[in-house]
Amino acid sequence: MSDHKTMTLTLIVWRQKNASDPGKFETYTAKNITEHHSFLEMLDCVNEDLIHTGKDPIVFDHDCREGICGMCSQVINGAPHGGQDRTTVCQLHMRKFKDGDTIYIEPWRARAFPIIRDLIVDRSALDKIIQAGGYTSCHTGGVADGNAILIPKPVADEAMDAAECVGCGACVAGCPNGAAMLFTGAKISQLALLPQGQAEASARVRNMSDAMTECGFGNCTNHYECMAACPKGINVKFIARMNREFLKAQFA
């Protein structure tokens, strides 16, 4: 640990006042950054300077700052969340950068995610996909005992792999087509793997895949950029499973 070493970085940040503003890049300097700063803490420091000098701070979405809420969303040097394996931008630390580096910071860019301001985008389209069928229609109360349904460990584990999605939208941001297949595939797979999801399986995949198109997401061309961008390591096998479910639903 070398606490005394600090870095100076050049940030080239997308600034956009609101949805209708065309937006542009602005250059800032981040000074006195240690390797233990998280990326967002580095931005906090820059913002404190901006506020002191009477300028508008850079706005960005964030909340938990521990990689689980899925709120943070920045494209760093072209890579959603900065490109470190299984890491959200709030968990990215400055030790991954070198003194003197120039860093481009941009919002998620996708047709389905209009920019609200600076680095903040509107991801409500992901909620719409879930509303189209990302649930089991059980009622509150009146359900069977948890152990009445047997789910062998390997199945439960795989469903859990899919369920790890935090809904950040990095997969969409990383996809050259702005497709939401990884996000949707993860939810469909989770419920397709579990017995609880069977009753509505075909309606679910039909409705959720239609919702993807209605919300303006692109189509999959199997680049697998989504998987590279995903901070939770969601595997594209879940897209394959969704495709399979889709085919099954056509004959159901």
Partner: peptide, 17 residues
């Protein structure tokens, strides 16, 4: 029970419990 019905992937053993 409610969460299981919703599809919450609680940890299970090999027998499925």
């Amino acid at each position: 029970d409610q969460c299981v019905a919703q599809g919450v992937p609680f940890a299970r053993d090999y027998a499925g419990y």
